[in-house]
Design a binder for these strands. Sequence first.
DNA 1: ATATTGTTTAACAATTTTGTTAATACAAAA
DNA 2: TTTTGTATTAACAAAATTGTTAAACAATAT
Lengths: 214, 214
Amino acid sequence: MFNSKTMDNKEKQNKECQILIAAEQEFLTKGYDGARTTSIAKAAGVTHAMLHYYFRTKEQLFERIVDEKFATMSHSMFAIMGDPSLPIVERIKGGISAHFDFVAENPLLPRFIINEIVTRPEHYEVLYKRISLIIETIFHDLQFEVNRAAERGEMERVDVKMILISIMSMNIFTFLAYPFMEPLMGELMADRDKFLAARKAENIETIMKRIKKQ
Amino acid sequence: MFNSKTMDNKEKQNKECQILIAAEQEFLTKGYDGARTTSIAKAAGVTHAMLHYYFRTKEQLFERIVDEKFATMSHSMFAIMGDPSLPIVERIKGGISAHFDFVAENPLLPRFIINEIVTRPEHYEVLYKRISLIIETIFHDLQFEVNRAAERGEMERVDVKMILISIMSMNIFTFLAYPFMEPLMGELMADRDKFLAARKAENIETIMKRIKKQ
DNA sequence: ATATTGTTTAACAATTTTGTTAATACAAAA
DNA sequence: TTTTGTATTAACAAAATTGTTAAACAATAT
């Protein structure tokens, strides 16, 4: 009675929130086309009319998820930049590690983002303009540091963009293709945590050797 | 009149073939859920009833494409093994190059395969058992050769599976994430062919340094 | 010529999926 | 207590998509 107001607010937030949680799961695993609003509603424990009541259309609900996921992805891009206060080689090492951990915590994200970009590139042009400027600046800074370190003979003078693509490739592909590789790799991947730790170490080792002074 | 027979045979093969070509394009770019049989029929220049006449259901048409694409993918796996008559380091170098070229010729394939495996793993269990034994054997052979070369001091004693995962990661990710990276990388990717050549060289260089004797 | 077989079309049927609406309940505020 | 706005449900509507069928048509063989 006296707390029915708060209860209802909670319930309301709960339903809207449950729908978002269910929608995230559904869209990330099945994509926009494979997702069903009825399936999302069912997973959220509400009637499908409620889903439309809160989010109007499938498209709008999807936008909500996409926005959040693109924000998350931006963070992963920043993780790869590493800690600017460290010496450059350590910074890159830390960047690889942080990026790997980030992707490990969001293993469904890369496939979702890539599928979105490939299937509807025009949707994301605006979003892209924003972050590409920032990225460009960070590339520039990193390259400057690399060049200085190279002149001091601490590492090879490498193209930062190429190195970052290699890092992203190896870190992301680990999770992107996990279900594909798992049945092919036998004992190596039997213990998931052990494999991921080994993979992370391998990625760091590979890049470290790539940038090491000969 | 007199050539109507041959014309019609041609036309028939043409229609069935046109549908397959259109279906391949549609399924590879949009996936099973995003693909529309009407859209495929339209692209093939036939009524959608014809599509059902030749392939009965969307599912069966899809199976045809999937089978062909999985076969293609198997070939790419073999390309990465390189030429057994070469010394092991050259063999690996050649394998990276051949694999890169293979993926370059089938740039839509990796995303398609990964999406399939992730969204319907149970569908491919049978298919997997077949190739995993072959793969295991090849891994074993390669590892044997690597071990011998390492004992002769020609290279570092590395885990072949890890190296192959790294190669696949870097080669495949290049094409998988191309639309994602292109707007972020500025001049580097302005000329696609130039970028791909540079990327191929970078992948080879990275792996060569990884397996090189310290 | 005629029967047979396979091809093609147009119209239709069935199903799935998204989205809407009218009726209802219910709490909060006036 | 009336009013107002929000939440909820169930039933319905609309659209898209896949799949079917009957009949027309063409090719080939008998």
